[in-house]
Design a protein around this nucleic acid. Structure first.
Lengths: 148, 148
DNA sequence: TAAAATTCATTCGTGTACAAATGAATATGA
DNA sequence: TCATATTCATTTGTACACGAATGAATTTTA
């Protein structure tokens, strides 16, 4: 039987935001970002790091494709790439086969900054998962992936 | 023995951003926000909802206190509260005992909008956890809380 | 092939998120 | 009590995050 609107309102007193998944997800993400920011040396954000790392795997590729691979909106990936270009980590070039596309690739500096920070990135991952045992980490990662 | 910088660089090829907790946490949060936005009727964001719900529990309280209770920066909570005030959901008043503080409280409209959306908030929580079984949900929430 | 649909990149507007700095008010301690 | 420290709220600047709109280029399909 479907709950009526009144039933739900009656249940309101029992509602606690700070027991909802969304509340925890936001905080967990915040904590990870803080840990990452602290661990990384070259003033790179988590999203910039995602873009750089993924670009290394799939370069050369278009901007939108990089966005898709890193779960970033077209508007978001644009800003991220712009900042990485400005800092000299990413290079852009027109696509000869497709006049719409901008081809992205890593520069020498981009490759260098990745190499210099992989360690810190792993430390950040470790720090985020620190409160969990080895078994808990595996379980948690598995469940977390399911709700992505 | 401490890993040298070279060792870490050598390990770089095995590194995959899309297998790190941070990558999943960001995406899971994004998915939840999308589900919540879709479920809610009155154009409320997840953070606005957190502020409203928490305020109902602890009102009257100062702006910074509400921020602390909802894990929001002083600058962040200011923006959130400003928007809620502008929409008539939250009222502000000077604190008689403390000249620095602004006392926040819910208006009638604020209480009404909470009552009208508790159901949708629960639906959003349900939707976010939908890929998990009942047992998995309990386990996941427990582990998630540990890394907040 | 011509029209319709899709894709790419860009721009605008709104809303978190946080570091850092500021000034006013209150609390603390010597 | 008076100087120091803390707290509160605000402001500035930078960086995601996404909906929505735009125009150019490409693909699909009728």
């Amino acid at each position: 039987m479907q709950k009526s609107r009144e039933d739900r309102q009656a249940a309101a007193p029992d509602y606690h935001v700070d027991r909802q998944v969304g509340f925890f997800l936001r905080q967990a993400n915040q904590r990870h970002v803080a840990i990452f920011t602290n661990a990384i040396g070259d003033k790179l954000t988590t999203t910039q790091w995602s873009a750089l790392s993924k670009l290394k795997e799939i370069q050369p590729c278009s901007q939108n494709q990089l966005g898709r691979e890193t779960a970033m909106d077209v508007a978001t990936i644009k800003g991220v790439v712009d900042r990485l270009v400005k800092r000299g980590f990413v290079a852009t070039a027109p696509d000869r086969n497709d006049g719409r596309r901008v081809v992205l690739s890593l520069t020498e500096e981009g490759l260098a900054v990745i190499a210099a920070n992989v360690g810190a990135a792993l430390v950040a991952t470790e720090g985020t998962l620190a409160p969990l045992t080895s078994g808990e980490r595996m379980m948690f990662l598995e469940l977390l992936q399911k709700i992505c």
